[in-house]
């Protein structure tokens, strides 16, 4: 499903920062993988490249057999929309939209009609046990509820891959465990390839495979 060969990434700030120094990585379909590493080791950078949110400088990245390199913004947007579901540490919900409107948004960009969109979004919220919260705004919900809305939004397009950047980072340990159980369940029941960035060993322990990043390379 995912194949990385010699990926390099340098941030050209005031001082160039060579973050990824040749990443080689294979992730098969249906895997549940965690990426661990110290803060600043480049975990998010790697995940952003996997999510086609950011470019890389050197190497090759194949996603489901397609080389992801120098894509046009429109193609990239389309891949993100259809192939990938994102879950962020800070949820990244749109504040002035209700839960169900947030979940509908990826479908809006797919051009799905309003009624159909609403129906699919409601189904997804129901799976998350949030039917009663559909018309609430993010600031009216707890962190765990918000993250479940974000998961519903990631799942509504039936993506091949879920990319989660510290999904439990902003949650207390109890809700963190709940969210992890949810992700595990999705992985086992729907066979969605799931990659979770974390620095929490308890979270990593629940995944099938742990990838460690150090000094810009992978040491498994």
């Amino acid at each position: 499903m995912i194949q990385l060969k010699g990926i390099h990434k340098t941030y050209f700030g005031a001082q160039p920062l060579h973050v990824l120094k040749g990443i080689d990585l294979d992730i098969a379909e249906g895997e549940l993988v965690s990426i661990m590493g110290a803060s600043g080791s480049g975990k998010s950078t790697l995940l952003n490249i996997l999510g086609i949110l950011d470019d890389y400088d050197e190497g090759d990245y194949y996603l489901a057999g397609t080389l992801i390199k120098h894509l046009s913004e429109t193609r990239a947007a389309d891949y993100r929309n259809r192939m990938i579901g994102f879950i962020f540490q800070s949820f990244n919900l749109i504040a002035f939209k209700t839960a169900v409107e947030n979940v509908e948004l990826p479908l809006f960009y797919q051009g799905v009609g309003r009624r159909k969109r609403h129906q699919l979004a409601m189904e997804e919220l129901e799976k998350m046990g949030l039917t009663d919260w559909a018309t609430h705004y993010p600031n009216e919900m707890s962190g765990g509820q918000r993250q479940r809305v974000a998961i519903a939004r990631a799942l509504v397009t039936h993506p091949k891959i879920i990319l989660a950047d510290e999904p439990t980072g902003a949650l207390d340990s109890k809700t963190g465990v709940e969210v992890m159980q949810l992700l595990k369940k999705l992985n086992s029941e729907e066979r969605i390839t799931t990659i979770i960035v974390t620095h929490d060993p308890n979270v990593a322990a629940q995944t099938n495979r742990i990838i460690r990043i150090k000094d810009g390379v992978i040491e498994e």
């Binding site: 947007a77 994102f86 990244n92 504040a95």
Partner: peptide, 16 residues
């Protein structure tokens, strides 16, 4: 920025 970034992340093209 955040809102637009989120929209872009979940599939909005620059033209949209």
């Amino acid at each position: 920025t955040t809102e637009i970034g989120i929209r872009r992340a979940i599939g909005a093209t620059p033209r949209t």
